[in-house]
Amino acid sequence: MAPLLEIRNLHARVVDGATILKGINLTVNPGEVHAIMGPNGSGKSTLSQVLAGRESYQVTEGQVLFRGKDLLSLAPEERAAAGIFLAFQYPIEIPGVGNLYFLRSALNALRKKRGLEELDAMDFLSVAKEKMKLVEMDQSFLNRSVNEGFSGGEKKRNEVFQMAVLDPLLAVLDETDSGLDIDALRIVAGGVNALRNKERSMLVITHYQRLLDYIVPDVVHVMADGRIVKTGTKALALELEQKGYAWLEGARP
């Protein structure tokens, strides 16, 4: 089976700033769910932003292959078209751009790139209504501006809703559990689990083990100081929960 994502010796820094990623190696096969854990500042979120193509980071070394092809030369919208989706840790509020219009524009842009017919407003609405059920979202959200005035939980549900509509091959969930109470966490995780299948892979980035009770990973990686320092099964996450991150200090891949 050919891997979906291969990250080789990836180094990246903030443009004109500090180096954050110092040699990441990671392979994700189709259908696998990988969790990436680690303390604050270890580079977890930077990795997710670099994968999605954020221009404020600069890759200085290494490569990333997605379905065997170079990912790093692609613009963010081309990565989305290739099948990458990033659920943001802090979804952006965009006043004046309607949620429905935004998401239809996005889906149609992807469909166009993939040689599919664009959906008209009516067809899109029925797709949207169907997918909203996954995260128990109210239809009134569609008529509001993108994330504007949404609560923390509503924003995260909106991210998973978008993921459901855009149907990616690789979903990167960046601290999707942060700021959620237990009910919201259950809803969001339920939505994510419903989207698991044998083609779709996920990178679940989290600081806490709690999320992994709901989204059970196949592989757990631990990041520290810009590197993956430990890889294991779900048991590793539980170990971290008990011991904290301190015992990893000094660990090397």
Binding site: F85, I92, F102, A106, A109, Q162, L166
Partner: peptide, 9 residues
């Protein structure tokens, strides 16, 4: 970036 990450050129 948010819009582009969703596929909007």
């Amino acid at each position: 970036f948010y819009l582009r990450s969703r596929g909007i050129p």
